[in-house]
Design a binder for these strands. Structure first.
Lengths: 214, 214
DNA sequence: TTGCCCATGTAATTTGTTACATGATTTA
DNA sequence: TAAATCATGTAACAAATTACATGGGCAA
């Protein structure tokens, strides 16, 4: 406990809470283990920080008195460290996790959709191919989610992680349906519609006062 | 081709491409206008950069020869600037937009799900309330998407933006269904299950060798 | 004995945000 | 004439990544 905390309202970045969250499950673990676990669970609906950042957050968490570490080889610097959450850490995390204002809207950054939005710059076939590739990737992710879920479902302590993974499974299925519908829309708009792309298209350079797209 | 660019493979952050993408639709516009437009379209499936960053990206784009600006009051520094994409910019953007490797998997950072994953730290009712709040927010977003879509659908040049917004509409509907299912899972797991939360729970401090959660 | 996984960290850099400063034009 | 919106930018900072440095243990 490094004392001296004045404010009771800690302003921490999401990563710090996520790392502390990993620590909130029974057991002590190393930064390395935390990273692996994040890669096979958090990453499906939140995200997985770089390993170097995990170590940085662990140090910060320990300074705040939210986590405590024990070195394995007693005196060594840079020896294996196992971290555990403290009572103060658990209390702070519980406060954060229940704070409804803190949880803003989900952040989605969908590169494929940006490309669809910019569809006038690609050939229709290319666009279709990109959507299909996205579906392949999604399918692969779905398999990974299911594997993680099968793993989690075996342990009673991981009931909530299992629920989150179940949500993620459904989310990936929805993503596939969304892509399917997008493909259909593309097929309908492509051949008949205002056919975009590189070649032959008379007029259409109407620069000047065109209204701002929505 | 505006000369002097040595490398033909520009390594630009997503934001730069997004801003250039906004510019790729017919018409010249100011940074300010770009921001408003991003707020009512890009933000639904990608994201909307801070206005200060838009200005920064516009400057970078102009340096690269991908965009060109014209001041309104001829000699003034800090006068209104209208930007337009150049041929080089359009070509680079088209290359980027068709690059399938460039488009990684979608990034999702879902604060609500992180809290569900951490469900053992909240009271069940609190969790349910958070999911319901999320549904309210999603409903409001859905309305905004639909409004933007109605706007976009009127202009033939915005056929692809309209498609992207249609995808977003469906995505928000899916998000609602996902939340519904989550609520059901929570109700099922809550009363009977390994009832987490603050009070009265004997044992459960099993620190030590517990396996790493998935 | 080579290469992989475990394990921890530092340094440099990029990306992006918020807060601030400034002023013109439009609307109530 | 006051407030809102339009419009552009700077400065300080936070968050997070990549690249790099280091070294032990184990398996092919």
């Amino acid at each position: 406990m490094t004392s001296s905390q004045t404010s009771n309202k800690q302003e921490l970045p999401p990563t710090a809470w996520a790392v502390l969250g990993l620590l909130s499950f029974p057991g002590e673990r190393t930064g390395y283990e935390l990273k692996k676990w994040a890669d096979s669970s958090l990453r499906f609906f939140y995200w997985s920080p770089a390993i170097s950042q995990i170590y940085a957050e662990l140090r910060r968490l320990e300074e705040l008195g939210y986590a405590a570490s024990a070195r394995s080889g007693p005196e060594e610097v840079r020896a294996k460290r196992r971290y555990a959450i403290t009572d103060a850490g658990r209390a702070a995390l519980a406060g954060w996790a229940s704070d409804t204002a803190e949880a803003g809207p989900p952040v989605l950054k969908h590169g494929l959709l940006l490309r669809v939005w910019l569809g006038h710059l690609s050939e229709p076939e290319r666009l279709r191919a990109m959507v299909e590739e996205h579906m392949d990737r999604t399918l692969a992710e779905l398999a990974a989610v299911r594997e993680a879920m099968a793993h989690a479902a075996e342990v009673p302590e991981w009931a909530f992680p299992t629920l989150a993974l179940r949500w993620s499974e459904r989310q990936h299925l929805a993503e596939l349906e969304l892509a399917e519908a997008l493909l259909a829309d593309l097929a309908q708009a492509g051949p008949a519609g205002p056919a975009a792309g590189a070649p032959a298209d008379p007029g259409r350079q109407a620069d000047g006062d065109s209204p701002t797209p929505g």
